[in-house]
């Protein structure tokens, strides 16, 4: 085994513009904001949920799309099953879980899709095009880069806790939090310092207009996706208003 994991390209062949992804996120959040459980609006919601799933599959991560679909279908089925057959506290808990899955899982997969297919330089380019101040763009870019790092650090800490048998903080909730959070913060400070040093010695923060070599721009596919999402969102809002739901 030469490499532990054969690596794949970050951006798939679709190369959507980061701004398209942003628009997708915004439109999607409008849908998430308003709740419906049946009728045409619900159908639209399901369709919109599966647009990012479809995109994920197109980018070659079919297994993730499949797993999400399975989870979603299962949650839908379980919800209906519970409504008919299980009552009381257990039923309520089940319902709540299903509800949360159906409410947030679509957002999570959309966010995941957007982050995992966007290069930092593309993101910086898009931010400067929509005139977000560079400082804020840097902060957000660092966040995007830092989530996986946080995951790596957390996994090491969790392993260390398992080795010492303190995963459950010896029965104390406060210790459970403390033993995870404190080492994580110590690592974070180190990584933050080292990252800052590496970045400033390579000229980050220079008061010149930053060049962005990433080719970003709208293509037919970007327009198509935004258009479809926009129409669906408008229809969704229309149907929910018809149905008497209050709009925020």
């Amino acid at each position: 085994m030469e490499k532990a994991v054969k690596t794949k390209e970050i951006t798939g062949w679709l190369h959507l513009d980061p701004r398209t992804k942003l628009a997708m996120l915004v439109l999607f959040s409008v849908v998430v904001m308003i709740d419906v459980v049946d009728g045409p609006a619900y159908a639209i919601r399901v369709v919109m949920t599966f647009i990012p799933v479809f995109l994920v599959c197109l980018e070659g991560r079919v297994h993730i799309g499949a797993r999400f679909t399975l989870l979603y279908v299962f949650a839908t089925w379980l919800m209906q099953f519970t409504q008919k057959n299980i009552h009381g506290v257990a039923g309520m808990l089940l319902l709540f879980v299903c509800y949360m899955i159906m409410q947030f899982a679509p957002t999570i997969i959309t966010v995941w899709y957007c982050i995992s297919t966007t290069k930092i330089s593309e993101f910086m380019a898009a931010m400067s095009r929509i005139r977000v101040p560079q400082g804020i763009a840097i902060s957000i870019a660092v966040m995007m880069r830092f989530f996986p790092t946080l995951g790596e650090e957390y996994r090491s800490i969790r392993d260390a806790m398992r080795m010492r048998g303190i995963s459950f903080g010896r029965g104390k909730v406060t210790k459970m939090v403390e033993y995870r959070l404190i080492p994580l913060l110590f690592s974070t400070i180190n990584i933050g310092d080292e990252l800052s040093q590496a970045a400033v010695t390579r000229g980050l923060g220079a008061p010149v207009e930053r060049t962005n070599i990433s080719e970003i721009g709208f293509h037919a596919r970007d327009f198509l996706i935004v258009l479809v999402m926009l129409i669906l969102t408008i229809l969704y809002v229309y149907f929910t208003v018809e149905g008497g739901n209050v709009i925020l």
Binding site: I138, S139, I140, V142, T188, I191, A199, L204, G205
Partner: peptide, 11 residues
Amino acid sequence: AKDFITIGIFT
């Protein structure tokens, strides 16, 4: 610049 990095990390 380094402050913006810290902001990103803590956020």
